[in-house]
Amino acid sequence: MYDDSEAEAYIMLLLSDSNLPTGSFVASSGLESYVKHGFASSSPGADVSTVNFVRDSLESYSRSAIPFVSDAHRAVAQFATNLGESTIMGKDGDEGYNDILKILTEIDELYQVMTLNHVARRASMSQGVALLTLYSKGFSQPPSLSAFSGEEPQEQETRIRKLVDLFKLKVRKEEVSGHLPICWGVLTAALGLSLERSQYLHLFLHARSLLSASVRLNDLGPYGAQQILLHAVRPLVAAEAARCRDLQTGLYVNPSEDFDETTLGPANTWPLGEILAGRHDLQHSRIFNS
């Protein structure tokens, strides 16, 4: 047995692998369009313009997506806790699946109607379903490896796995869109990552994928991107994570709480980025999907 924090650190290492669908080989989140439209040219250098883009994009993305990451994570974490109790009480869990799937669907539907940019919607859906596939294919334990972990999968784990499979099936049947922030919340809760780490890692990966895109666009060199990631992005991610920690979608507000949508709800903070991201497909030549 290893302790929880070591397990969490190990999961974070696995999820930060740039080869996973969390990395950016297809998505530039509007950066390619931003450069193409001449918005990077006014800065003194490519490093400054890239950092500016990362800042504006990260701020808007965290304000609009973190509420959904958080609500999906909380719902699945709550489901996991209740599972433990209901098995003690000997209750059948099938009802529980329907309830949690309904909640995740509602969260996903709200993200769908609030993401009013077809390019971002498309990218978010393809990355979302990739994460669910990653979980079922990349994180499941085949019998041949059970000797190494020294543990049989516990009942709770089995049932969370079933939940993710059921959600993925709904995405495949197009009953739900399966957007990236919701799938990220589901995946990280299923893997036992705390909400705080899940939020932080999600923002870090968004920033890192922008820098990878910048390298691929030949605006930054790989060493320059690494320098920015270490020196500039770290405080930005920390600050955004702190600022967006308590945001919610507003769908499941505790009546005792005083929820003010204007301070705690999801919002787009960068309409310029929204226009440029939406214009991605108009580029005469392009290398990214978004």
Partner: peptide, 29 residues
Amino acid sequence: LSVFKTRSPAPLIWSVSPIDAGKAGVIIR
């Protein structure tokens, strides 16, 4: 519209996205 690389931002830009899978309407910015 077809966008080629420019040195500086245009005086006016706009975008169109369908809402509700295109059945109901569009949002323009």
